[in-house]
Design a protein around this nucleic acid. Structure first.
Length: 593
RNA sequence: GGCUCCUUAGCUCAACUGAAUAGAGCACUUGACUACGGAUCAAGAGGUUACAGGUUUGAAUCCUGUAGGAGUCACCA
């Protein structure tokens, strides 16, 4: 058991024995002792004063005395104001470490028997992935790993937005302006080529609108009457009718985009268990509209459009079906949610979607609830903040986006340069070096993104490269490589002993073990908050603590063989836990760098 | 305008369910054993937690108001 949890339980017993009352677990606040005081953990006694009916100092002293007498793990205690500092015996700490080292699945929480779907990425086939998508992808991927560590069965899903007028715009531009160009003929990555088509359309469209306005038309009319937009709409109608030529063109261009996306996903180390396409799901949800009408949840307007009145819930009236019988965005989302819960037997569903859709998900959950689905409150919108540039929001049209592929390449180049400068990898094969450069560059990028609380808007300055020093991915990777290096040398010179008893850990070692022991609790906390950032910050704390310990403790040079073996066991455990924690973030740790 | 979210060191970010003197990194200044890996470590400087009230033994955290910022309020997705 984690020492902190043990103490909370014992403190509860102490209160009962001393004051004859059961207290709520939330009142027993055990926290790591701050550096400036003596102790491993601290009990805050203020919340217990109501029960003890005594002053803080006295209450703390009494509980401390009781713990000292009745809990063998407790060595000494001291009281500072209303805080009871508790020192656990070093031998107990050695046992805690031995337990951790012996638990292969340390940090893997017990199975919940629950199946969770995580939908993320959900790209638009008109736009190459940019930094905003990277945050989405990395969050989705790490939350999936986190939920799995939390004991859940996880299904990673994505919904590709592959239909609609916007797609027709790209298709039209390609037909008119691109002269049969293909990714092969131009050497341009498929998703980028199609993205170029979309931009070209926008340019053409704007010039047409401008010309019409110059000819005396109002801007509003011009936007509807521009020939290219009318043509795009005609194309959409043909697409819906299954027109052979349009469908072929659509399939070809989508193929280019998917090939491009696959490449980027692979570079990011991301995969999906299920890929849904809007072109196959966009008709879903219509039968739910019918059901809602029968239930009286929805109403029909004179023009035939169907609405859900949410004004009583403090929201607006929401359209769920157009007058012409076609779906809107939310219709489809209602339908897909229902299908996924029934087909995949989901217990819950996490949607990783930007916070600009907070309202949408509020409405979605509410309507599902009104339709009588009890799982509606097991839908979680993991709402994350935008990635902003120093000049503000990224805008595709203004060319202020940070392209995902460019950024990945830049990180690789940077990692390579730093690595070559250090010269540590000079003697290993070229392909292995390449793999490490990718690993480090990607580690820097992933950590940079994931360490920030998901719901906060974050800032990225393209002019400043992502750091490799300080609170960064490479710092943690470096720490790991350093430990492995010591372990390699140890294996050459002496055999690793088991974590034997009889070694009494130093205060610095106890701090390290304390952090190690907190790992499962940290995972649980992160799962509850759907926040991989907590795991990232944990890994940094552990790595930092190790580096401090390492700096003034001899390991290989320790003369006492038992102590040396024990320390090697300690640092190996640190390395192992770093691998687990960073694994949740999707970051690999190299043995050398 | 209504609703939602945000504002912590020069900059980027932490701070569990309210708890001790609000912590890291970057940048800046100064230093580190003839290195078990210097992508490291140590020290210094840097704060009225946007502002004003309130609740509490105790507030960055909870409540009210103000200022500033973002998002949203589509028969777009």
């Amino acid at each position: 058991m984690e020492p902190g949890k043990l103490l909370a339980a014992k403190a509860s017993e102490a209160v009962k024995a001393l004051y004859g009352a059961e207290v709520d677990a939330s009142l027993l606040q055990i926290q790591p002792t701050r550096k400036e005081f003596e102790g491993d953990y601290t009990l805050v006694v203020f919340p217990l004063l109501r029960t003890s009916r005594k002053g803080p100092e006295q209450t703390a002293a009494e509980i401390g005395a009781w713990l000292g007498e009745n809990v063998p793990e407790v060595a000494t205690t001291n009281v500072v104001k209303g805080f009871l500092n508790i020192v656990l015996s070093p031998l107990y700490w050695a046992e805690v470490l031995a337990d951790i080292a012996a638990t292969a699945e340390f940090g893997q929480l017990p199975a919940t028997g629950k199946t969770v779907m995580v939908e993320f990425s959900s790209p638009n086939t008109n736009k190459p992935l940019h930094l905003g998508h990277i945050r989405n992808n990395l969050l989705g991927d790490s939350v999936s790993r986190l939920l799995a560590a939390g004991g859940n069965q996880v299904i990673k899903a994505t919904l590709v937005n592959d239909r609609g007028v916007h797609i027709c715009k790209s298709m039209l531009a390609w037909k008119k302006l691109f002269d049969g160009k293909t990714p092969e003929s131009t050497g341009i990555k498929g998703d980028h080529l199609v993205g170029d088509c979309y931009v070209a359309f926008d340019k053409l469209y704007k010039s047409e609108v401008q010309a019409l306005v110059a000819g005396g038309m109002s801007e509003e009319d011009a936007k509807k009457e521009a020939p290219s937009i009318k043509e795009a709409h005609e194309m959409l109608v043909k697409w819906e009718q299954g027109d052979r030529e349009v469908r072929d063109l659509w399939a070809m261009m989508n193929g280019w985009v998917f090939a491009g996306f696959d490449q980027t996903y692979k570079a990011l180390g991301i995969s999906f268990d299920k890929v849904y396409y809007e072109s196959q799901t966009y008709l879903l949800g219509k039968e739910l509209v019918q059901k809602g009408l029968e239930m009286g949840v929805f109403t029909t307007d004179p023009d035939g459009s169907v609405w859900c009145d949410l004004t009583a819930d403090g929201l607006d009236r929401k359209l769920v079906l157009r007058g012409d019988g076609t779906s809107v965005y939310i219709t489809q989302d209602l339908g897909t949610a229902e299908r996924r819960f029934s087909e995949c037997h989901l217990d819950s569903h996490v949607y990783v979607v930007g916070n600009e859709q907070d309202y949408h998900f509020q409405v979605l959950k509410l309507i599902l609830k009104k339709l009588g689905f009890d799982w509606s409150d097991r839908i979680y919108h993991l709402s994350y903040g935008m990635v902003e540039l120093p000049e503000g929001k990224m805008k595709s049209r203004e060319g202020t986006v940070v392209d995902a592929d460019d950024l990945l390449e830049k990180m690789y180049v940077e990692a390579k340069a730093t690595s070559e400068e250090s010269g540590k990898l000079d003697d290993i094969p070229a392909d292995e070096k390449e793999r490490l450069y990718r690993m480090i560059g990607l580690g820097a990028l992933k950590y940079f993104i994931i360490k920030v609380d998901p719901k906060k808007t974050m800032l990225f300055d393209p002019k400043e490269s992502i750091d490799f020093n300080g609170n960064t991915g490479p710092f943690i990777q470096y720490t790991h490589a350093r430990i492995r290096s010591i372990l390699r040398k140890a294996e050459e010179t002496l055999k690793l002993g088991p974590e034997g008893p009889g070694v009494s850990p130093s205060p610095k070692e106890i701090r390290l073990i304390r952090i190690l022991s907190a790992y499962p609790g940290k995972v649980a906390e992160a799962v509850a908050a759907l926040s991989p950032a907590l795991v990232a910050n944990y890994a940094y704390d552990l790595a930092k603590e190790f580096n401090q310990y390492y700096h003034d403790t001899r390991i290989l040079q320790e003369p006492d063989e038992a102590v040396r073996a024990w320390r090697l066991g300690l640092i190996r455990t640190v390395a192992d836990v770093l691998v687990k924690a960073m694994g949740i973030l999707g970051i690999e740790l190299p043995d050398r760098m």
